[in-house]
Design a protein around this nucleic acid. Structure first.
Lengths: 338, 338
DNA sequence: TTGAAAGCGCTACCAC
DNA sequence: GTGGTAGCGCTTTCAA
């Protein structure tokens, strides 16, 4: 709890020199800096957060808005929160958690009190009420996910449409013509903008590649196993040989089990590609080709953009899409010549 | 971004009166308070966080230390983080997330910079390194969970031993003599102090009640289904009619499935009580009697104690155990007369 | 390359 | 019941 004045005295310099030596905002002679750093270390000095905020008008804190819905997928959320917090710490930022039932109230509060330098918004819905708050607020706000009306917002996300195209292309390249898409729960289709876009992209690309795609959601809830199993049976009956999966890990397991039950091998009879999976398709019991949704990528980009905004540097508003990466895991093979 | 001076001017009073009206630390006439509140509302005033910290030496921020281990149970963690953040907000506190790889570094940092008023420690291990930091720090620190050496710390947790005794008593009261305990993963037994204590309590109480208990962990990992199923078969073979479960939801499902596979009904043939479950045993497909671990209870108590410590009021160090609550759901019946 | 000093926007003491 | 004002510990001009 030593103050900057004590450091200055110990180093035999003025307070301002200590401040500049630490912030690097003014050149300081090597010798002076050395003495100051020694004093800082000696006294265990750490600048007072409140004073820094007040004088510098920078808090070095981000707010993380994460409205925990009941039907949220906890592991994915944890992964994003963690990745975001780690990305922030790398840039010397701390993370304040905003989980108000009313997320908007929290955002207003931290913005109005100058508690945070920027707000990072996770789990964005198409008609997210936080969009309005962001527009009305002077505090830089960054969306990880894409609301419907986003032209003047800064949004980060995986380029799901390119990912969908890439997935279809891989299957088509291997000779698959009849393609099936298993999406997330029906609620996921309402909660986010991307499931419908992935579906549209898969269908369109399959047609472009001279094939045909049929798409289904994975049921009312993520764990609607019966619905998933039925979809798989219908796919097989219809001659589908390539499956694109855009759903959580649990659904993949059900698909694999049902294929096995039908006596179908992977990738001998059926090829599978997982798109936008936030789980590790590598450590799965059965590895599957995937175009993963990597929390670190989105979060690091979001943090970088937030820092640009805070510094007053120009940032293009609109979508900042992360190019998909295809991971081969051996679940795609040539279509059976049937 | 209006300041306190603008509020004072708008209300026609001095800034000190505004400050006192808002903090309540000095009586203010009803009429004056009314005018001030109107002005606050009008201007959308929210006191500047940095200024408040600096002048008042209270930050109104808690730190939440949550080292996300790879094997952590995401839903439970989310539940605790959420409950803690909600409990804090109820007391006008914000929550800062500490997820540094080195948890101790984060705690030191926020304590040294005066960023937070108190630190709340979750997911406490028996030999938790954060204990040493807490001892060396002047910042009030509260543990949710019990480290080995805790005499001079303030710790909050469910009274697992009483819960274990209560569970056995319920089974014994219903005539069950042979009792089986299915614990969490083997790692859980190393990571926390309570699994072994629950085990000891169950075994001891079963003996006191003239019965006998056998205990097993649920395998290397939480999802070791094969191990759980085998344990259930062994229990049945050994004449167990009452099962105490101290494990996550997934394990309960496996137990129920295996009992059904063995042709055993619940509660006709086998009675079950879940202890320390953080999931909702009520909305399960099959409801089960339980003595739940309610995150809200622990978190609200932790926040209340933290506020006492911040205010400089005396708080007993050592354990603050939450009395268990038994929820009847019809999974316990009279032991078969066999 | 360095120092002196003016605030940042509050809280809380002292006075009335 | 209310007002004036001295700091809180920094950052950042302005001067040297």
């Amino acid at each position: 709890m030593a103050g900057i004045d004590e450091v200055a005295r110990a180093a035999g310099v003025s307070i301002s020199t200590v401040s500049y030596a630490l912030s690097g905002k003014r050149p300081v002679s090597a010798e002076t800096r050395r003495r100051i750093q020694a004093a800082v270390h000696e006294l265990g000095y750490s600048p007072n957060a409140g004073a820094r905020m007040l004088a510098g008008s920078q808090t070095h804190i981000f707010a993380l808005s994460e409205p925990l819905r009941a039907d949220s997928h906890a592991p994915s959320h944890m992964a994003f929160m963690h990745a975001m917090t780690v990305a922030a710490r790398r840039k010397e930022y701390d993370m304040l958690l905003l989980t108000d039932e009313d997320a908007s109230a929290g955002m207003k509060r931290v913005a109005a009190s100058g508690l945070v330098d920027a707000i990072l918004v996770l789990d964005v819905a198409p008609d997210d009420p936080r969009v309005a708050i962001a527009r009305a607020s002077a505090t830089p706000t960054l969306f990880v996910g894409i609301p419907n009306d986003h032209d003047d917002l800064v949004c980060v996300d995986l380029d799901f449409e390119r990912a969908a195209v890439e997935a279809v292309d891989r299957l088509a390249d291997a000779g698959h013509r009849e393609i099936g898409l298993i999406g997330g729960s029906r609620r996921a289709y309402e909660k986010s903008n991307f499931p419908p876009r992935v579906r549209a992209a898969v269908v369109a690309r399959a047609a472009e590649r001279g094939g045909h795609a049929r798409a289904v959601a994975s049921g009312e809830v993520v764990t609607d196993r019966a619905h998933v199993r039925e979809s798989v049976r219908e796919f097989i009956a219809a001659g589908v040989t390539g499956i694109v999966l855009h759903a959580p890990e649990e659904v993949l397991q059900v698909v694999l089990v049902e294929l096995a039950a039908l006596g179908k091998s992977m990738p001998g009879d059926v090829s599978i590609v997982s798109v936008g999976s936030s789980f590790d398709t590598d450590t799965q019991p059965t590895p599957v080709d995937s175009i993963p949704l990597v929390p670190q990528s989105s979060c690091e980009l979001a943090v970088d953009l937030a820092i640009e905004l805070i510094a007053g540097r120009p940032v293009a508003s609109g979508l900042h899409l992360i190019p998909p990466t295809y991971l081969e895991r051996g679940s795609v093979a040539a279509a059976p010549s049937a």
